[in-house]
Nucleic acid binder design. Structure first.
Length: 811
RNA sequence: GCCGGUGUGAUGGAAUUGGUAGACGUAGUGGACUCAAAAUCCACCGCUGGCGACAGCGUACCGGUUCGAGUCCGGUCACCGGCACCA
């Protein structure tokens, strides 16, 4: 009897069925209880199914959600599927199956797996971004963005994946290659729908201050938005044209010895057209070379600066009237600032490198560094003093920046300026499996939004999902669908054939959960008011600058137009570490080290899987899977199961366990809230060890079960029922109040204190709790091990840390 | 290069934020039970010296502050993540 194993294979489905039938975790949009909205990132339903990387955040938030219910909250803990996207479309192309069918099958599989793990989602609120009743509202939000001038179409160089034949957002290009397929990304001029996220740049930074996001998320978002302050300065060209440059160092203006325009700069085109450039051939050749370069090549060539001097045109420095050469070079980006710079080689490393290669003059204007002919001096602190700069001479850099800015403004040749690295969001994809963009183009009226009563604009069936070779969406071949009438004049018009990127549906999904079946609005104002904001959102760090930033942007927009009641969508954001394969390597099919949750559940049960994934290590850090450690968790659950048959009948707590029980309640309660699941479980294991050592009552055991229930809900419910607690307390363990501890009972009557002599541990003494210094010193000095080190010496000082430690300083 | 993080036994990791380093778990060793194995239970389990009680050393490395440092400060090294010609 002692080493009986519990039969998880029959227990787990039994309780999952009961939760489903009784809708145990269903929640209403009103309650006397305080609300708590816990959110995890909904999965992309890939063909591979759920993997252990999903299980970590899902289990963590399930533990939190289950505990908060027991704490007396009305908890919304929903799940759904982010199902538009390329892998499904590629699979459909390869196997000639409709993406909707693939999506449906994958979702079915995911749902089965999520239920198998016993998550307490409200299954009545499941959403699917590819469902027309959902994407109707994604399209609706797009129309609102358009109507408020935040969506626009423009021709611009975009990131073009050579393999996916598709435009990518900057965020989807990683080290010059496509984030998804790894193929090189080149620049291509295309007409694209854009969203003006840059309009929200400052608010996206400022409002982080009021949020409870983990610090590294805030820092990463701020870095990504990349605010910098400086000045725009207008230089004249000898042609009479004005060249506006952006600089963060207006103090160094006297050191500007040449200028650089990006190869795409409009003035270059203008001067070429006007025949002003003597070396037009070199210039156009350079422009052509730069345009065809992929981002990867640009980065690789990063070491060696290239460029062409524009012969026949010069710039004029507004501070001293000096004529300086103008270059074009791809180290100046057309997409940042004004696409033109003043080069100060003495105080900028890139300019210095370029100047050395092209023989430009290097003039020191900030002293305090090494010889500027040998290296650029870039320090911005008090170490530098301005020289060779007329009215700025003798100032520190810090003082010279505002002084020069003021001078520029007075003379009308410049002004202070804030710039952001963040760029507008490229919102079109030349792909099939996405939300159709609800816009119509009419030769007479231009772009027209589809009237809202025509939403959803359904994605039509096509024969082939392959993108066309000229980069148009497969939808462009559907002439019946493309040809329509203009909503404005009624004349012939064509629909937009591009679709939205995958990030669209996930930018607002958390709102739909609040009221998922509403067909009048994306969610009712009452539901939005009741549940907003999401109280706690856990997700991966990889979404920090993508999904998390995009959805904050959309939410702020919806707030501005009065749709949502809060200016931020998520109050708290936490993030989990990755699960690595055995041995610490990333899990991948090619390495053959992928752990399938189905196998783990089949062998050990869902409760063991859940417990282990929470016990594996620090939640925020990466952790390597270990089959042996899984066994340890199973062993622990077996020990709990067997302990149930050894409890005494008393419903009172056993005195011997009292302080460890109360300490454990405190520890587990606090650790779950702090996402220190590993130590919460360690505390439960230690408590079970105590119970085995001291014996335990039914009352002790019931408390243990309640604390264990968020981690191992199936086994706990089974024991709760068979031991008669369900009948006695009326309901399942997950419906009971969370145990409370009595602070006065967390301390034992006796304290074991460390005794140090001169800071070195020499003994421990056991004294009554809260003993005063005199008592502790006397007890310490009575110990022969202490006497050995104090003999013949005088105690000159004692330091007491109550109930912890006494340090005797002896001389 | 810039920003952020981490470094503790054989191993995953603890340590109430300056107070007994190594909780809890794995692996290992010895023992009990067993014909035997598995499972379970008990004991040991940082390094060095000693039969031993014990002593010395020990949280990447060097230095500092302190009665006391894994924790704080200065410097060095290594690894991980993000950004990367953003003027």
């Amino acid at each position: 009897m002692r080493d009986l194993k519990y039969d998880f294979a029959s227990i787990e489905p039994k309780w999952q069925k009961k939760w489903q039938e009784e809708k145990t975790f269903h929640c209403e949009n009103h309650s006397d209880k305080p609300k708590f909205y816990a959110l995890v990132e909904f999965p992309y339903p890939s063909g591979q199914g759920l993997h252990v990387g999903h299980a970590r955040p899902y289990t963590a938030m399930d533990v939190v959600a289950r505990k908060r219910r027991m704490d007396g909250y009305n908890v919304l803990f929903p799940m759904g599927y982010d199902a538009f996207g390329l892998p499904t479309e590629n699979y459909a192309i390869k196997n000639h199956i409709h993406p909707a069918k693939v999506t449906h099958d994958n979702i079915e599989n995911f749902t089965k797996q999520l239920k198998m793990l016993g998550y307490s989602f409200d299954w009545d609120r499941v959403i699917n971004t590819t469902d027309p009743s959902y994407y109707k509202w994604t399209q609706w939000i797009f129309l609102q963005l358009y109507k408020h001038g935040l969506a626009y179409k423009t021709t611009m160089p975009v990131n073009w994946c050579t393999s996916c034949k598709c435009v990518l957002a900057n965020e989807e290009v990683v080290e010059g290659v496509c984030e998804r397929c790894g193929s090189p990304v080149i620049r291509k001029e295309k007409s694209q729908w854009m969203l003006k996220i840059t309009e929200y740049a400052q608010r996206l930074i400022d409002d982080l201050d009021d949020l409870d996001f983990i610090e590294r998320v805030k820092i990463q978002q701020k870095n990504w938005i990349g605010r910098s302050t400086g000045a725009e300065v207008t230089f004249k060209a000898t042609t009479g044209d004005e060249i506006v440059v952006y600089t963060t160092r207006p103090d160094t203006l006297f050191g500007a010895t040449y200028m650089v325009l990006s190869p795409e700069h409009e003035l270059v085109r203008k001067w070429l057209d006007a025949g002003l450039l003597h070396n037009a051939g070199d210039v156009t050749a350079y422009q052509k070379a730069a345009a065809s370069k992929s981002d990867l090549e640009r980065t690789e060539l990063n070491k060696e600066k290239t460029g062409v001097c524009l012969s026949g045109v010069e710039g004029i420095n507004p501070v001293n009237g000096r004529r300086i050469p103008i270059f074009i070079s791809d180290y100046v980006l057309s997409t940042y600032g004004t696409g033109a710079i003043m080069a100060v080689p003495a105080h900028d490393e890139r300019d210095w490198e370029f100047a050395k290669k092209f023989g430009c003059e290097i003039i020191e204007v900030v002293s305090g560094g090494e010889d500027v002919q040998k290296a650029a001096f870039t320090a911005k602190d008090e170490t530098g003093i301005l020289v060779n700069s007329e009215f700025l001479n003798g100032m520190t850099v810090k003082d010279a920046i505002p002084a020069m800015t003021e001078w520029l403004e007075e003379k009308g040749v410049g002004h202070s300026k804030v710039n952001y690295k963040l760029r507008d969001w490229v919102f079109s994809r030349q792909r099939y499996w996405g939300e159709p963009i609800p816009m119509v183009y009419c030769e007479k009226c231009g772009w027209q939004p589809l009237p809202e009563d025509q939403l959803p604009l359904l994605l039509p069936d096509v024969e082939s999902y392959e993108p066309t070779d000229d980069g148009e969406s497969p939808l462009s071949k559907m002439t019946d669908w493309v040809n329509t009438t203009c909503p404005c004049c009624g004349g012939p018009a064509k629909r937009e054939t591009d679709t939205m990127p995958q990030w669209a549906g996930s930018s607002w999904y958390f709102l739909r959960y609040m009221d998922p079946h509403n067909d009048k609005a994306l969610a009712s104002p009452e539901a939005l008011k009741y549940w907003s904001p999401v109280d706690w959102y856990n997700g991966g760090m990889e979404h920090t600058t993508l999904h998390l930033l995009y959805s904050r942007f959309w939410h702020k927009f919806l707030y501005d137009i009065g749709v949502v009641p809060t200016k931020e969508p998520y109050q708290k954001r936490t993030s989990h570490g990755m699960i690595l394969g055995e041995g610490g390597e990333k899990m991948s099919k090619s390495r053959g080290n992928v752990i399938n949750p189905n196998d783990v559940v089949a062998q050990y049960g869902a409760d063991t899987m859940r417990l282990y994934i929470m016990f594996i290590g620090d939640f925020e850090k990466a952790a390597a899977w270990s089959d042996n450690a899984v066994k340890g968790c199973k062993r622990f659950l077996d020990r709990v199961w067997n302990l149930s048959e050894q409890c005494s009948d008393s419903l009172e707590h056993t005195p011997a366990n009292e302080s460890s029980l109360h300490k454990t309640i405190k520890k587990v309660s606090e650790d779950i809230e702090a996402m220190k699941f590993n130590t919460a479980i360690a505390a439960l294991m230690a408590l079970v060890n105590d119970f085995y050592a001291n014996g335990c009552s039914k009352g002790d055991f019931a408390t243990l079960l309640l604390m264990l229930s968020p981690f191992a809900p199936h086994m706990v419910e089974e024991l709760w029922e068979t031991m008669g607690f369900a009948a006695a307390k009326g309901g399942m363990a997950c419906q009971q109040p969370w145990p409370v501890y009595d602070a006065s009972k967390t301390v034992a009557a006796q304290a074991t204190m460390a005794v140090q002599v001169c800071g070195k541990l020499r003994a421990t003494v056991t004294v009554p709790v809260d003993s005063d210094e005199g008592t502790v010193v006397a007890a310490a000095l009575a110990d022969p091990k202490v006497q050995k080190f104090t003999e013949g010496k005088q105690i000159v000082k004692t330091i007491l840390v109550p109930n912890k430690l006494i340090n005797l300083i002896a001389r």
